[in-house]
């Protein structure tokens, strides 16, 4: 979590008058989310008479978020704050990839294959992974899940690849 190495104001794309980049960018993104929500709910009916339409509450919340996002960004301009923490790409990338793979694979190839492969993809996310160990643990975990979810808990899910079952 410590971002001590790049505390120096180097490589900042933000203009100098931004004193708290972490808050500033955070606020801007919230504003973006709020605008997106306003756009997304623009087709919904607003107030009619004194009763709420489907779009009233979403718009109220979106406007609130817009104001709060702006306030956070203003704080980022006015007050000295931390720099944006360094992101690493490896962990997020492989964990996300593992999740996406699982989501795409569970229907066509079933629990056994998708859980095992996802485990190995997720394991790529750490540079400390030892492969033999990971494969053994992954296999055990897959076996455990394959017994736990469908049999012990009675949750129906595809187990094996479709083409093998048929």
């Amino acid at each position: 979590m410590t971002d001590t190495p790049n505390q120096a104001p180097a490589r900042s794309i933000l203009p100098k008058w931004v004193r708290g980049p972490q808050d500033f960018v955070g606020g801007i993104v919230l504003i973006g989310i709020a605008l997106f929500a306003l756009w997304a709910s623009s087709d919904l009916q607003g107030m009619h008479g004194f009763s709420f339409g489907a779009g009233t509450a979403p718009r109220i919340f979106a406007v609130l978020l817009l104001l709060l996002g702006a306030a956070v960004a203003v704080v980022g301009v006015l007050k000295d704050g931390p720099h944006i923490a360094a992101y690493s790409w490896r962990g997020p990338f492989f964990v996300a990839a593992s999740i996406v793979f699982f989501a795409l694979a569970i229907r066509p190839v079933g629990l056994v294959v998708s859980a095992f492969v996802s485990f190995l993809i997720a394991a790529l996310g750490s540079h400390e992974t030892k492969w033999l160990e990971a494969i053994i643990v992954g296999a055990c975990l897959t076996l455990g899940c394959a017994l736990l979810f469908p049999y012990v808990l009675g949750l129906p899910m595809p187990m094996f690849p479709r083409f093998l079952v048929q």
Binding site: S98, A115, F119, A122
Partner: peptide, 13 residues
């Protein structure tokens, strides 16, 4: 390093 992929898979299932 062994715990986190297990948690990921368990959560996903």
């Amino acid at each position: 390093r062994l715990m986190f992929p297990s948690i990921v898979i368990f959560c996903a299932i």
